[in-house]
Write a protein that binds this DNA or RNA. Sequence first.
DNA 1: CTGAAAGCGCTTACAG
DNA 2: CTGAAAGCGCTTACAG
Lengths: 330, 330
Amino acid sequence: MKNITISDVAEALGVSKTTVSRAISGKGRIGAETREKVLAYIEKHNYTPNVIAKSLAQSKTYNIGVMIPAEYDIIDLPFFQSCLFGIQEIAATMDYDILLTISKPEDTTQLERIVTNRKVDGVILMRTFVDDKQAKMLSKRGIPFATIGSTNVEKAIQVDQDHESACKELTSILLMKKLNRIALIGGDENHVVTQSRLKGYLDAFKEAEVPVNEDLIYLSVNNSVLLEQKVEEILEKGADCIISMDDALCGNVLKKLRAEHVKVPGDIKVASFYNSSVLENNVPSITSLSFDEKELGMVACRSLMDKIEEKETRMATTLGYQVILRESTK
Amino acid sequence: MKNITISDVAEALGVSKTTVSRAISGKGRIGAETREKVLAYIEKHNYTPNVIAKSLAQSKTYNIGVMIPAEYDIIDLPFFQSCLFGIQEIAATMDYDILLTISKPEDTTQLERIVTNRKVDGVILMRTFVDDKQAKMLSKRGIPFATIGSTNVEKAIQVDQDHESACKELTSILLMKKLNRIALIGGDENHVVTQSRLKGYLDAFKEAEVPVNEDLIYLSVNNSVLLEQKVEEILEKGADCIISMDDALCGNVLKKLRAEHVKVPGDIKVASFYNSSVLENNVPSITSLSFDEKELGMVACRSLMDKIEEKETRMATTLGYQVILRESTK
DNA sequence: CTGAAAGCGCTTACAG
DNA sequence: CTGAAAGCGCTTACAG
C-alpha cells in the first residue's frame, strides 16, 4: 500500500508536477480553476505531502529543537510543561514540530547532535545560565535560537517576564495597605531574576517614600533549615508581611508559621510568586503574582519562527503579569 | 558556506558516491583500505551526513514521537521527566531523536499530524487510558508504538512496572514486623494500577495467613479533605501502619499525623510508593517502594526500536522494583 | 571489491 | 498561466 505522491496526482489530472506543487503551496502563478481542480482531487484521495522530501528540496526541517535542562527544581516542571504547550500551539499552526532534548546546562553534545544532523531549523532554550555554553554554541554556529529568560549571549532572541515591575507593583499594593514592615525572602542572589525582584521591591518603597528595613531582606535562602531560622528572625523583628519569591519557598514559610501558631492573615500577611498549583489548595488562599507561562512559550516560538523565515524579528520581549489579591493579605 | 556532501568527498578521493556511502554505513562489501581512506578524509574535513537526504532515500525519519498527556497530576511530572531521559538516552545511541507532542488523551489531532506528515517512525505513549483513542489510532494505522503502562489495544508494545508484586512484598515485610492492622490508602479505584496494588496487598495477608481488616482499606481518596477524614478514622480504628499508594498522598497523611501530634514511627508506621523527591527531606525518612522510571523509558524505547527495525520484539515487559526500608517503619 | 545510474518526493529557476 | 528539467543529498539494486 504505497503512499500517493505528487506525480500520481499530476498524472491523474493530466497536469505537471510543477502545477500540483504550486496549487498546494500557493506559491507562483496558477489559474484559479486549475488550483481548484488539484485541491479537490487531493482532498478526495486524501493525498498528504511527504514532508521529508519537501525538507530536502527546501533545506528546511520543519522542526524546532527545544532544550529542557536536566537539572531543575521540582517547582520548575509545571513551568516547562506550560511553556512547551505554548510552543507546540504556535509551532503546530505553522506545521512545525518540537524536537526535544534534555541535557545538563554544561553539556552541549545532545544539542550539537541535532544541529549537526540538521534536524532543526532553530532552537528554544527553556532556561538561561550565567556562563551559557549552549547559547554560546548556537550563537557561534549561527543557528537561530530563542531563550526563555534573559541572556547576554549575542544573537539570542530573548523573552522574559517582567519580574521587576511585577514585584514593584505587588510591594506597592502591600504598602498602600499600610503594611510597612514587609519582609522579602528569595533564592540565590546571584541569579539575575532575584536581583530584578529585589530592585522592584526597593523601588516600591522609594516611590511610596517609606523607609526600607534592609534587615528584613533575606536572599540566598536555599534550604529549609535556613528558611526556618529566617522566618523566626522575621517574626522576632515584628514584620507585618512576608513576600516569598516563589511558591515552594512560600509553602515552607506557611508550614513554619503554622508550626509557630502564627495566623495568616490575622497575625501576619503573606504573598507569593507564580500562583502555581503548589499553593492552590492552601487555606487561606494566597495572594500571588501570576505570569502567563504558556504565553512565554508562544512568544518565544513565534519570534523564532519569524527569524527562521527571515522576517523582521523582535529580539527581546518582556511579558506582563497579574497581581492576584487573595485572603492571605486581607 | 555550503555544507560538504558525499559527492564532494567522492570527487576529492577519486571514488564513487556509492563507495563513500558504503564506507560510512558499513553496509555492502568494501575494501578495508578504501574504507579507511574515506573515513580518514571524512574525519579530517568533518563531513557530517545530511540526515534528511538519508531519510528520504530510506523512507525513515530517525525520529520517534513521544506523547505526553496534557492532563496530569503534578506528581506525574518527575515521572515523565525520568522516562524521557531514558528514552532519549537509548534513542541517541541509535541516532534517533524525540519528536514531542502534548495532548489531552481524547485528542488525536497532534498525533495524527506527525503520523500523517511521516515525521516519526514510531511512537511512545507515556500513559495509557481506559478507552485509549490514541493507542487505537496508532494500532489501526499500523504505526509501531509502545505504551508505558498496560493496555489492551492490539499491536501495542507494553512496558509496565510490577505494582502487584511490589505492593505484596512491601505488605509482607510489614506483616513480618508484626504489624497487622495495616491501613491502605489509594487513588481512583477504577485505575488498573490501583487494583493491582490492592491485589498485592490482599495476597500478602493471605500468604501470611493474617486476617485482613477490609475496613482499613480506603480507595478513591481523591482530595485532601477526604484524606484528612480517612486518616482520622484510621487512627480511631487503631491501625498500626499506613501504606499510601503514592508520595503525594503520603505527604498529606504525614501532614495530618503531625497536626494530630501522632508520632512516626513511634505511634504509627508509614510507608509509601515511588520514593520520589517529594518526601526526600522528610524526617523521619520514609519507607518506600522504588521503581526505576528511567529504565521504563529505556526499555520502551529499545523495544520500539527493535520493532521499527523489524527485529524480534518483546511485546510486553514488566519491570522490577525495590523496597527501601527506612526509619518510618522502624 | 567498485561504480553508473535510477530513485526517494518534493521545489524552483528558467523558458515559453 | 503552465511545464520540462535540474536539483536537494543520500541509498541501493544491478552489473561488472
